[in-house]
Nucleic acid binder design. Structure first.
Lengths: 157, 157
DNA sequence: CATTCATTGTCAGTACTCTGATATGTTGTC
DNA sequence: GACAACATATCAGAGTACTGACAATGAATG
């Protein structure tokens, strides 16, 4: 049951103010949440979250980075990445060792188990990505990527 | 200082795999995080967060909804909106009262103070929205809205 | 009427993400 | 060498968001 008697006044998702006429921030949040949820479920049996997959992908491409490096690349704060990296370390997917020269820096690398896990994750993520691309025209996908990069870059502190 | 000796190998944000060629989920997450951060800072002196603004906007448009209603409209779980609504209630921006007929439902409404606050928030959010729209072509904004609605709606449970 | 089912609200637990603050290590300047 | 400036890591606190589980209310079915 609905709380109001005029429950028919509630627009359905994707219509009116809740659709293409709404705030961009609102649409952005919902789209990101929906996509993340799909990814979440697709990776849930592997006990890997989308942010963890992101960090592992970066460490695979650029091994030996520090927590601060990861934070810069991911456009996140060091405190945030610290939590994600701590969870990855606890699960045995990554290892940290002190930098030879710089005593305070901790260099991070994927463990062999982490590399194998990353491979499995990658195919899952690709599948979700494919599914998405099939529901949007190619030209819209191009515009989408362009716009998202712009939004992410405008005020990237 | 950088953790690796080949620090120049790190691509800058918006370039290569970190740009228009990367995962859509990755771009989506970064764009949503960047936009949310801008909104966060623009509203910080009012002690209102973007999700709280969303909920207040919905309650203004459709007064008397329940927590479960809000969750459905916002495409979030009731647990999530419950926390947001509890914070809004603690701050005195909203009020909850039992439904006359249905004993368990709690209907939510903005307080007068909450309505005034919403007006202030709205102008701030509009400004951020304007700033964004100026950096993206009109046709790309249209495609962006279209794509975001599609993504948010595809598997909206 | 009794049982079942769906809805509502909420508790507990986990993870992600921010701000603010603190301690430690490196570098550059005097 | 002493000191200031910067980078790194980390602690604490708050808000957002999920899954899983539970009790209470109302509706539907037998």
């Amino acid at each position: 049951m609905n709380a109001s008697d005029e429950s028919t006044m509630l627009p359905k998702s994707g219509e009116g103010k809740r659709g293409e006429e709404g705030y961009i921030g609102y649409l952005l949040r919902q789209a990101a949440a929906a996509y993340r949820l799909r990814l979440d479920r697709s990776l849930s049996d592997l006990n890997v979250t989308p942010p963890q997959f992101s960090v592992m992908t970066m460490l695979n491409a650029y091994p030996g980075q520090s927590n601060a490096d990861i934070a810069r690349v991911a456009l996140l704060t060091p405190q945030t990445t610290s939590v994600i990296i701590a969870n990855l370390e606890r699960a045995g997917h990554i290892e940290r060792k002190a930098h030879e020269v710089h005593g305070r820096i901790l260099q991070i690398n994927l463990t062999p188990a982490g590399q194998r896990l990353l491979q499995t994750c990658r195919s899952r993520v690709h599948a979700v990505e494919q599914e998405l691309a099939q529901n949007i025209s190619d030209s819209d996908v191009d515009a989408l990527r362009r716009s998202l990069v712009t939004i992410a870059t405008i005020n990237a502190t």
